[in-house]
Write a protein that binds this DNA or RNA. Structure first.
Length: 575
RNA sequence: CGGGGUGUAGCGCAGUUUGGUAGCGCAUCUGGUUUGGGACCAGAGGGUCGCGGGUUCAAAUCCUGCCACCCCGACCA
């Protein structure tokens, strides 16, 4: 490819909308452009990278025995109604109708559609197990698209679905996908971690997330250096030791606490640690209000709470001030489990049962109750764990302190069980001629998100540093001065030689000054740069690796091809 | 959806407070000089100032409604 022919609009300045490195660099390197919020176009260089990531995913999926198909992005509402997700998915689903007012959506995921694909044709145990996948565009109307390709409303995903006779088969398929994902993310050169996740709207079995570790990640993972425990902060079980408590239950007493509405205020007012309080948080869940009582020094885990009360995320939010006033008869900040409006269900974190003589809101403005005790003063539904994990909490597996880090979820695997086969009646006949439900799993890789994640993990102050396996081109040949015949001719000769040898090479034949070409080469991040400059007269060129631009190696023209091959092979390409 | 902010040329921005002929840098085009780290000189093109309504002799600027985009929060590949 010649750069003069390539549509590669690089930018000197960072577009003001881009905040994080991958978004800024993808824009500046002329790889993507925004169409509208959360929707991007891929330009030639970005498209090449995307296709390479797709190809690695495809190869490993094929190697695992999964078969590629391609389903429509547009899906009829009927299937989603069968599984109840037409309502459960909520406003994140892009919905539309046809001219006859028939309802459709743009697929945010494809469990229903794949289940439908196989339910009429898979009838026998002899057809199982089976695993199908596609690499296709997904649509989710995110509340807040951001960070370029990391949270977009349209994105490329590889989604796979496994179909098995029984739970053991599903577990086996799950493990195979886990292994395939390990191979995929290893080949992509990612630093990643496999963590336990919350299944959310997908199903109720186990799930794991593959998380590319980086500072700008939106996932928080807690993990243990001493054992293999790793989980998202939503999922991680918390172990919260409760300090020794007073032996005797004291008498419940109402005290004036003027303008003391937060835990911080209470600590000062009573001169006590936050662990002597129980905070009561009110939530609007669908059409009802629930209260969660948790130790004052800890934070509520909304995911665990939603799971406990069985509502979907879009039906759940912190109660607004008006609701709080209605159910507590007090200003915000004085809610407590004693004397709360009867309509409010009270959920209590188990740790509260170990606490004695604690302070709670009195459901009266500027008043608190002291010496409250569970059982004697109030009761509720006890939940084992409603708390969010914190650095320094002990590992639930081995008891050592936990560490936390951020990352981007680039893959996930879910055990679906029979959720969708039940809803859509996907069954087969077993050896005894008996009808059985198919056991399913679903497995996603965010392909476009992986592209952004690779950049987050591979860039420097000059630009992107592509791993050779996904670089848009392997080598850029840069004649320093195209008006110099020797340089131009030598560069052309090298370009032809490398191209003929199967190297993906791009020739920077633009009539630009050297600075512009070198800056662009570093911005885009070609793994190898061959600059043809002063040495051209003696048949010498400069060989530079993008990951080590300081190190410039003067080599003879005759040695270039061998050197390029050697380096690319070292970086995992087979030439 | 809540909170904050921004919309002026392809990109980055000034101008809005105090209404009066729409500007700067980069990019683009022409000619010339230059060629190892985002050149220089001379010239040129490009904007219904997000959209609608209002106030005014006069609106990028004031008022008002809407829209889009970005950031912080809760969700996900």
């Amino acid at each position: 490819m010649r750069m003069t022919k390539l549509y590669m609009p690089t930018l000197r300045e960072v577009p003001s909308e881009a905040e994080i490195p991958s978004h800024q660099l993808l824009m500046r390197a002329g790889m993507i452009r925004k169409l509208v919020s959360g929707v991007y176009s891929y330009l030639p260089l970005g498209h090449r990278v995307l296709k390479k990531v797709e190809q690695i995913v495809r190869e490993e999926m094929d190697a695992s025995g999964s078969q590629e198909v391609l389903m429509s992005a547009i899906q009829p509402s009927e299937l989603w109604k069968e599984s109840n997700r037409w309502d459960d998915f909520g406003p994140e689903m892009f919905r539309l109708h046809d001219r006859n007012e028939r309802e459709f959506c743009l697929g945010p995921t494809h469990e229903e559609i794949f289940t439908d694909l196989i339910r009429y044709e898979v009838n026998s145990y002899k057809q199982l197990p089976m695993n199908l996948y596609q690499i296709q565009t997904k649509y989710r109307d995110e509340k807040r698209p951001r960070f370029g390709l990391i949270r977009s409303r349209e994105f490329i995903m590889k989604d796979a679905y496994s179909f098995d006779q029984d739970e053991a088969g599903m577990m086996n398929a799950y493990q195979e996908m886990w292994d395939a994902y390990d191979r995929i993310f290893t080949r992509l050169g990612m630093k990643y971690r496999v963590v336990e996740g919350d299944a959310g709207a997908m199903g109720n079995g186990d799930s794991h997330e593959f998380t590319a570790m980086c500072e700008v990640g939106e996932s928080n993972v807690a993990y243990c250096d001493a054992c293999d425990f790793a989980a998202t902060d939503e999922k991680a079980e918390t172990i919260v030791p409760i300090a020794a408590q007073e032996a005797e239950e004291k008498e419940l007493e109402k005290v004036d606490t003027p303008d003391v509405g937060t835990i911080e205020d209470l600590k000062k007012f009573f001169d006590m640690g936050a662990d002597r309080f129980v905070k009561t948080l009110l939530f609007q869940a669908k059409d009802r209000v629930v209260a969660a009582c948790i130790p004052g020094h800890r934070e509520i885990n909304e995911t665990k709470l939603m799971n406990a009360i069985g509502v979907a995320e879009h039906e759940f939010e912190m109660a607004d001030a008006e609701t709080v006033k209605r159910v507590t008869n007090a200003e915000v900040g004085f809610a407590g489990p004693v004397g709360l409006d009867k309509e409010v269900e009270i959920l209590v974190d188990r740790r509260v049962l170990e606490m004695k003589n604690f302070v709670i809101g009195a459901n009266e403005t500027d008043r608190h109750l002291i010496n409250a005790n569970y059982g004697r003063d109030f009761e509720g539904r006890v939940i084992d764990d409603l708390l969010v994990v914190r650095v320094g909490d002990v590992c639930p597996k081995c008891g050592k302190p936990l560490v936390m880090d951020r990352g981007i979820e680039v893959g996930n695997i879910f055990q679906l069980g029979t959720k969708y086969s039940t809803a859509l009646s996907a069954t087969y006949l077993d050896q005894n001629g008996k009808k059985q439900l198919i056991w399913m799993g679903s497995y996603g890789v965010g392909v476009s998100r992986s592209v952004a994640s690779i950049i987050e993990q591979n860039h420097d102050e000059h630009g992107i540093v592509w791993p050779a396996v996904v670089a848009p081109f392997h080598v850029v040949v840069t004649p320093i001065n195209v008006k110099n015949d020797e340089q131009r001719e030598l560069a052309e000769a090298l370009y032809e030689e490398l191209k003929a040898a199967g190297v993906e090479v791009i020739l920077d034949d633009r009539k630009e000054r050297p600075g512009v070409k070198l800056k662009d080469a570093e911005l885009i991040g070609f793994p190898i740069r061959i600059a043809v400059g002063r040495g051209a007269a003696e048949g010498k060129v400069e060989f530079v690796l993008r990951k080590d631009v300081k190190n410039k190696d003067e080599i003879a023209q005759a040695d270039v091809l061998a050197r390029v091959k050697e380096e690319l092979n070292k970086q995992g390409l087979n030439l």
